[in-house]
């Protein structure tokens, strides 16, 4: 899993560096005539995602203490937080499209949808993994190793988000 996260890091590293190269090649950024991204709403959203990362961490801590019920409860809250994050993201995308920012309207829009979309897909994938772990939690099929694998990937997805927020939204 760590090897996989490493190649994922390179993947996002490439997207970010591509974004920075193109950004530095344009004098006006964001390009004129393009809508601005919702900084405030996304800041709240960031809190939800980071919060869910913290909850997963706490859930793991109570699991290692042997408190399986508490761990499951915390994981449930983490999943709810992540669902809220994805919901707000979806709402944001729809409103951005209504304001005229799309894949083809400018490289600004292309990069926004590309980077944030890739991240969103990763959140979705990691979330499905966590949900499957959650469903197995109190059964015998539960394996702490697979929960740990899901956590590593979740921490990666959560950890890369603030970087993207600063680079894509705040610049």
């Amino acid at each position: 899993m760590i090897m996989f996260v490493m190649s994922e890091m390179m993947f996002f590293g490439a997207l970010i560096s591509a974004f920075l190269i193109v950004k530095s090649g344009n004098i006006m950024w964001p390009p004129p005539g393009q809508p601005r991204l919702p900084i405030g709403l996304t800041a709240v959203n960031t809190l939800f995602l980071v919060g869910s990362g913290v909850l997963v961490y706490l859930s793991n801590k109570s699991l290692s203490r042997g408190d399986k019920v508490g761990a499951k409860k915390l994981l449930r809250y983490a999943i709810i937080c992540a669902l809220i994050f994805l919901g707000i993201q979806g709402y944001e995308w729809v409103s951005m499209l209504q304001h005229g920012l799309s894949m083809t309207s400018s490289t600004y829009g292309s990069f926004f949808f590309m980077i944030i979309g890739c991240h969103g897909l990763h959140v979705l994938g990691a979330l499905l993994f966590l949900i499957s772990v959650y469903r197995k939690f109190s059964t015998e099929a539960f394996r702490p190793e697979s929960y740990w694998g899901g956590q590593v990937f979740w921490y990666f997805v959560v950890g890369v988000w603030p970087v993207l927020y600063v680079l894509v939204y705040l610049s």
Binding site: S7, E8, M9, M10, F11, F12, G13, A14, L15, A18, M103, T104, S106, T107, S110, M114, C118
Partner: peptide
């Protein structure tokens, strides 16, 4: 990783008309 990222962008350039 970088090549997959690049390939996705190239695919979007080819099919969706991004730039």
């Amino acid at each position: 990783g970088p090549l997959i990222a690049g390939a996705v962008m190239l695919l979007f350039d080819q099919t969706l008309g991004t730039s």
